[in-house]
């Protein structure tokens, strides 16, 4: 293959990729615009939001508890392994609580929910798209965004901070128990360490992260589901892309928010 052909192919590849990215950006912006416009139709989305919130919140409790429980215990055990000798015992309390609140609870909860509800949203809406149910709604003069997208996005975005608080509680409790058992730490040391390092802003930061992650794990899968083409194969592709994109977006947002909100000037 000549150099000219290789250059041409790369140009074509870059061109095609840029066009696809621009097309996604345009359609995603349009969906967000439609969502904002649909907010006035609260009679449509509000009752459906309660249904979705119940499903997301109640339905995710077990998996969130399991993830946070193990994360708290492992953080505690690893802290014990890393900080050997010379470190005051109360430090462990601070490390465990801060790790859970600032990073582990929001990120792990969002990751788990990206798989659980992100995949579900993309598959549901994708199936509805390919079986013309979305078109059917539109043909009846109803807004598919207000009926299908808004309830999912609002419920997911509002439920994630609640689930993160739940994960905080479970994670800290399991970390505490693990520290007591494995590190032979007293309750007083743990509480003192936790209070010593804790700043109220940490909790706010955790909630801001949870809200941003909530948006990411609902808007992206809803968009992917709505853009589904080509039958069952398309639904599978949308579901996979939705989960992967939402997970990558969580990591990207995590780094961006840490830089924006935690870096001291």
């Amino acid at each position: 293959m000549s150099n000219a052909t290789v250059t041409l192919d790369i140009r074509r590849l870059v061109g095609r990729f840029s066009l696809r990215a621009a097309s996604h950006a345009g359609r995603l912006s349009y969906l967000i615009f439609e969502m904002v416009r649909g907010l006035s139709e609260w009679r449509v989305w509000l009752p459906r939001t309660f249904e979705q919130a119940q499903n997301i919140g109640y339905g995710s409790l077990f998996i969130v508890a399991l993830t946070a429980g193990f994360a708290g215990a492992v953080t505690s055990l690893q802290a014990g392994y890393q900080f050997t000798g010379g470190i005051p015992a109360y430090f462990y309390g601070g490390v465990i609580v801060e790790s859970i609140i600032l990073e582990l609870a929001p990120v792990l909860t969002a990751m788990v929910l990206a798989g659980r509800i992100g995949a579900r949203f993309a598959a549901e809406l994708g199936s509805m798209r390919v079986t013309e149910q979305v078109d059917a709604l539109e043909s009846l003069g109803r807004s598919s965004v207000s009926h299908l997208v808004l309830p999912r996005v609002i419920a997911g975005t509002l439920m994630l901070p609640i689930l993160v608080v739940f994960a905080d509680v479970v994670g800290i409790a399991s970390g505490w128990f693990a520290a007591k058992g494995a590190l032979e730490m007293t309750n007083a040391d743990f509480v003192y360490g936790a209070q010593y390092f804790f700043r109220p802003w940490d909790l706010w930061y955790s909630m801001i992260k949870a809200l941003c992650f909530g948006l990411a794990i609902t808007v992206v899968p809803c968009y992917m589901g709505f853009s589904t083409k080509q039958g069952a194969e398309g639904v599978g592709r949308s579901t996979t892309t939705a989960v992967v994109s939402a997970s990558v977006l969580i990591l990207f947002l995590d780094a961006t928010l840490a830089k924006l909100l935690l870096t001291r000037s």
Binding site: D135, A136, E138, S139, G141
Partner: peptide
């Protein structure tokens, strides 16, 4: 958008595979 929705409410559409909400 609203005018189109109003017009659509006067147009019944029978889909090829029913497109029923399952």
């Amino acid at each position: 958008r609203k005018e189109l929705a109003r017009l659509r409410s006067r147009i019944g559409y029978v889909f090829q595979y029913g497109a029923l909400f399952d």
